[in-house]
Amino acid sequence: MSQWITALPMYNVTPHHGALWRALLEDALDAFAQAGGPRDVAVLDNPGDDLLALWRRPDLLLSQTCGFPYRMLGLTDAVQLLATPAFDAEGCEGAHYRSTLVVSARAWAQGAVTLAACCGLRAACNGHDSHSGMNALRHAVAPYAREGRFFSSVAWVGSHLNALRALGAGVADVAAIDCVTLAYIRDALPELLHDVRTIGATASAPGLPFVTSHALPAEDAARLRDALDLACAADAPRAKALRLRGFVRLSSTDYAAIEQCADEARALGYPELA
């Protein structure tokens, strides 16, 4: 490959977080080059909206995807799993994470203090291809759904930040928020949580994986894994700000837990978040 590309689009909750992730990426690329990896690498600060197309590019050296497209949308055919970050955030256990179930303060005051009590309320969800916002919530709701429905409506709002804003604005009542994103918001944007209440958590699942194209030779993939470890250890204050404990080596089969969530919801007659 004459030139490679990289992008870390998943946890840029604020510009500050985005800058920290870019700095970690640059340190990883430096360590990778020093170990004999390719040096001609372009960092994409704005990879565009079609992330599935980005992750399928044969010149993708490094990116982070969601477990749902990785396991459910065929990404395993295009990428190889490098590592999964382990975070210091409530809801995280090693390289596994949960989504936090939240409701608006208004819905809480009207009795929505459990997920079962949210029947007939309005949901906000970041996207159809999200495990944390859609698949995990669908799995949690499935035991309470009747005839394939639980919510009165589902608004697809594009991000977890927008889901929280929808709750605060009174245009939605309930959402599932990735617990790492929620920790970042508590650190940097606590005002978004003033009118939000926590009512539970979803099942645990493997975290958002770092991946590379199958075009990258195995020996370079091993060097890149080591480079991620070095970048994490290179700046302890940065790692602390990112709540990043390190990187764990999971296998692709570990991500079957995400498919299992979808299968269990379907078995209960709830194939779509509705």
Rank of each mutant, 00 (worst) to 15 (best):
A95D: 04
A175L: 04
D226L: 09
P38S: 14
D254Y: 03
Y97C: 09
S152G: 00
A166Y: 08
A183D: 02
L193M: 11
R266S: 15
P69F: 07
F151I: 00
H139G: 12
A256V: 12
Q260N: 09
A233L: 13
T84N: 03
A175F: 03
W4Q: 09
G120Y: 04
A105E: 15
N12A: 14
G67W: 07
N162C: 10
T114A: 10
N135L: 12
D50F: 01
L121W: 01
R186E: 13
V196T: 13
A256H: 12
T6Q: 09
I199C: 09
V157W: 03
A172M: 04
I199P: 09
T202N: 05
Q260K: 12
C92F: 04
L25P: 00
P217V: 15
A222G: 00
V154E: 01
M1G: 14
L8I: 13
L20E: 00
R57T: 09
D195C: 15
D50M: 02
P271H: 15
R98E: 04
P69T: 06
C66V: 06
C92L: 00
L268P: 13
P206Y: 08
S2C: 15
A124L: 05
V248D: 11
R57H: 12
L193I: 11
L52V: 02
R223E: 02
D235L: 05
G94W: 01
W108R: 14
L25T: 02
L121A: 05
Y184P: 04
V79Y: 04
A176P: 03
P58G: 11
T114L: 10
H214G: 14
H16R: 14
Q80I: 05
G133A: 10
G91P: 02
G207V: 02
A105G: 15
H139T: 10
A116H: 14
P206A: 07
Y11W: 12
C119W: 06
P209D: 07
L268H: 14
L216F: 08
T76S: 13
S104D: 11
D59P: 08
A53C: 02
V211T: 02
L62Y: 01
A89Q: 02
S2R: 15
S153D: 08
A239L: 11
L44G: 03
A23S: 10
A136P: 05
C119K: 11
A241Y: 04
L24W: 03
Q110C: 13
C118I: 09
K240G: 08
L224R: 01
S132R: 03
Q260R: 14
L164W: 06
R165D: 09
L20H: 00
L192G: 12
P217W: 11
L73H: 12
D50A: 02
L224I: 03
L82T: 01
I177H: 01
A222L: 04
A172L: 04
D49W: 00
